[in-house]
Design a protein around this nucleic acid. Sequence first.
DNA 1: GGACAACAATACACCACTGTATGGACTTTT
DNA 2: AAAAGTCCATACAGTGGTGTATTGTTGTCC
Lengths: 206, 206
Amino acid sequence: MNEAETPKRRGRSASEKSQLTRDNWLDAAAGEIAAGGFSQLRVLTLAKKLGVTRGSFYWHFRDHEDLVLSFLDRWRDRRLHELQYWKPKGGDVETELRQILELLLTDASRNIRRLQVELAVRDFARRNEYAAELVTQVDAARINQNCTLFGRMSSDPQHVRDLSLLLYVATIGSQVVLTGKKGDEATIRRIEDLMARVVLGQRDEP
Amino acid sequence: MNEAETPKRRGRSASEKSQLTRDNWLDAAAGEIAAGGFSQLRVLTLAKKLGVTRGSFYWHFRDHEDLVLSFLDRWRDRRLHELQYWKPKGGDVETELRQILELLLTDASRNIRRLQVELAVRDFARRNEYAAELVTQVDAARINQNCTLFGRMSSDPQHVRDLSLLLYVATIGSQVVLTGKKGDEATIRRIEDLMARVVLGQRDEP
DNA sequence: GGACAACAATACACCACTGTATGGACTTTT
DNA sequence: AAAAGTCCATACAGTGGTGTATTGTTGTCC
């Protein structure tokens, strides 16, 4: 539906001609993976979607596996990279916490395509070693970032880590359980509120 | 490669006779689904695993879809049914809460096959209407049960519902994130502890 | 303006899997 | 003991997918 923008001398369908890049194929693959998971990823389907034949694919990629691994690598790189680009805007502890939670829950649940891809990668990781490795990396990086974000909550590092992990699994879980059913927008908001209260209740309380 | 060897004629390990039943096929399917998801479910593979040919399958099932739908139905029935069989043993609020959390987290994470099947069903539900429907039913039933279990926590029904939902998504999330990596046993225990503290902190506090 | 590289179309060989038709073998019914 | 039912094997047709080899087409550099 959306399609990634190609610099475009030939629009995808019928006009003039432009060459496809590896990234174009990966973008198309993202669509298929979001819709049907890695197991439904077909070279022929991708080619049709891009308006070319499989001949093009096998110029850009060695084989089907090459596509999958390249996609996974790009996914990992992007997920790790995007973590650099977000810092809370400051303010008191509570508003900062609100910002973090909104990012983790409400914002994340809006990009449903990105969400679907992530769930597909996680599922694929259950039966693919390499994918599992990358998912582990991404999880660790995110939890780590949560730790720095929640550093203000407690002076006990272990407590901070546990809290970060709990929040992380809760966000992942809410993405798994509350995916795209109507009325979930409001539900997610309430979960967000509750989480805020819960976390604030976990501040250093000797 | 392992187990499920056929003793002599073509006997199964479960039934008295050497004849296969629909349920035998569904059990075998569970193994495949746990390992590779619904998309890797192959009639031929199942037949080999059971030591018969596909001729048997097409006697017991109309087609591949029949197998899948039957499996989903059985899954739903079992998941709903098992909810009846558990009530907390009583005691004060904290020990009861501990029991519940142990059931939801530690116990659940031990049956890794059951867990893998559930994750596979959830994944399949993302692209299959019927599966999505059943997952919704199961989720609703479980959250509902959590509500009754957590009823002692607060007198505000909405608060109880939100808390139940939060705990539910957290458990699902921990199953998704912490699946079978070593050292997760201890991690789950710590999450369990933290959850207990968190929930106790949410008792009526006007 | 020809050579060469980048990219894509076409055609083919091949395989994994499904579903169906049919024919046993063994069991139960009558 | 013949008929009918139950369960599985075998053989075959069809489909949808991969990968490869070969040939076109276009752009770019000299």
